[in-house]
Design a protein around this nucleic acid. Structure first.
Length: 467
RNA sequence: CGGGACGUGGCGCAGUUUGGUUAGCGCGCAGCGUUCGGGACGCUGAGGUCGCGGGUUCAAAUCCCGCCGUCCCGACCA
């Protein structure tokens, strides 16, 4: 067995994470503290996530647009909670064109305010509603303790912003996008997060309610994978986003916003990665299959198989670099997480087979060269399913019910601790926070996301240490 | 931003305590040869303003001051 190429997770999880990102060529630190250079392999993963999510956002009736990076400080200041929440992490530009600016401009930490300003002009009538927008952008939130993908001062994301004629519609939109996110996580990222609602202390600055998706990483810490906010009329009031009703009355709009960022790549790494490296679910692997020539003489067979796989719509790369040692190439592809590795050597060709290795399970089998592409392509959905089941059951195993806050504080265990919100309460939450725990979300006892005060009252709190 | 550790070729490190010729090692990289079915080996070679800026000294990777950066722990967040 090959010696491990990464620090084992059990030995030092943060170090494992860092080494994996470096060795899989996903990303590296930028020259300015807190910034991140996303390398081609990492960016290809993000692009697939982006495409999958963009398709879903369009399918639910939203249009993409782009708003400016620079925001007048005065905009941010119009919503009291919003500015209070974001001011500690704002990057502010004070100079431009060689001289000091009259009014400093903020680099967007999020775009509710600029978009709100635009919407106040674009919306006049109930006929303009609902207005369903989305933008793909970078945002800046100055980070004191950066970590690649998880917390960087600049990150990439998608932020949806919508305006509606009623609270009900806004609520429906908020939960619809929450569901869209859940589907993305499950069917693309092969992660099944807990769906819930943020407590008042964890709520987005300026929102009435925040809904979240929380998943457990392999080290037992939780990560927020996406959020969806019902903004009520807070921003509508601040930016005067109103419309005339059918009867001619003027009303304020009800707004939502929702976002998913490059942070999910961090989740992907920490949920699926193992001591041999990254494990990519086929649905977002830039290369779903790598066909590796053991010897130079088998290169043609590799190229042919790869072409045949491409014909079936499979994303394939070939590795014909026979000058590099075989074992070396194998471990490199394992670190990168390619779901299926097909090896073709002289022995295989003699026997009329190819050797096929699954990254998720390590299972190795020889399959007939005739019809190999079909058999290989057929593995992909199976790997996808199996990785989801793996991740979901690992999360379940790391989730336990507790009867009270003392039990949490006394434990060294990681993972989710679950108890009723009635047993915990805001005071209990404060005590947990003081000790490094946080209430990740409140999930409905009935499985529904708690949307009403009554549902919150009867909800179950998921408590964990978090990223 | 607080507490701790650390910055030496691309990566990982030794050397720093006790200043003293051309700053070493492993990996990686380039060339050649032998290898090749789970990180191969030999030979040859390239590559370093010792994080940056000051200071002390005949002499600084080494001592002093400041700054920057990285990692871990805390408060904040997608």
């Amino acid at each position: 067995m090959a010696k491990s190429v990464l620090t084992p997770q059990a030995e030092d999880f943060p170090r494992w994470y860092q080494e994996l990102i470096q060795k899989a060529e996903l990303a590296e630190n930028g020259p300015v503290r807190g910034t991140m250079t996303i390398r081609p392999w990492g960016y290809a993963i993000w692009e697939i996530i982006q495409r999958e999510l963009d398709d879903r956002i369009r399918a639910t009736g939203h249009k993409n647009a782009y708003f400016p990076l620079f925001i007048p400080m005065s905009f941010l200041e119009r919503e009291a909670d919003h500015v209070e929440g974001f001011s500690p992490e704002l990057a502010v530009v004070t100079h431009g064109g060689g001289s000091e600016l009259g009014e400093p401009v903020a680099v967007r930490p999020t775009s509710e305010t600029v978009i709100g300003d635009a919407m106040s002009r674009w919306i006049q009538s109930h006929r303009d509603l609902p207005l369903l927008l989305n933008q793909w952008a970078n945002v800046v939130r100055w980070e004191l303790r950066p970590r690649l993908f998880l917390r960087t001062s600049e990150f990439l994301w998608q932020e949806g912003h919508t305006a509606h004629a009623s609270w009900d519609e806004a609520q429906e939109e908020t939960l619809r996008m929450h569901e869209v996110y859940a589907d993305l996580m499950e069917s693309v990222l092969a992660i099944r997060p807990v769906l819930g609602r943020k407590t008042d202390t964890e709520r987005f600055a300026g929102a009435e309610a925040t809904y979240t998706l929380e998943a457990l990483m392999r080290d037992g810490k939780a990560l927020q994978m996406g959020t969806s906010h019902n903004l009520g009329q807070n921003f509508a009031r601040a930016f005067d986003i109103g419309y005339s009703t059918e009867s001619g009355d003027r009303e304020l709009c009800w707004m939502t916003s929702w976002g998913v960022s490059t942070r999910v790549v961090g989740a992907l790494i920490m949920v699926h990665g193992d001591d041999s490296g990254l494990r990519l679910p086929p649905s977002l692997a830039p290369a779903q299959v790598v066909v590796l020539a053991v010897r130079e003489t088998t290169a043609d067979a590799c190229t042919q198989l790869a072409d045949s796989l491409r014909g079936l719509g499979v994303r394939v790369e070939t590795d014909l670099d026979t000058h590099t040692g075989f074992g070396r190439r194998v471990t490199d592809w394992e670190i990168k997480g390619v779901p299926v590795r097909v090896e073709i050597g002289p022995r295989d060709l003699e026997d009329g087979v190819v050797t096929c290795v699954r990254r998720d399970s390590g299972t190795k089998e020889r399959i007939g060269l005739d019809g190999a592409s079909g058999a290989i392509a057929a593995l992909l959905p199976d790997i996808q399913r199996s990785m989801l089941e793996d991740a979901a059951s690992r999360q379940t195993e790391m989730t336990r019910d507790v009867t009270g806050i003392e039990e949490i504080l006394a434990s060294e265990a990681s993972g989710f601790c679950r108890l009723t919100w009635a047993d915990l309460g805001a005071e209990g939450e404060r005590r947990l926070n003081a000790d490094g725990w946080s209430v990740r979300c409140l999930a409905g006892a009935d499985g529904e996301v708690p949307a009403t005060p009554a549902a919150v009252e009867s909800s179950v709190a998921y408590v964990a240490r978090a990223y």
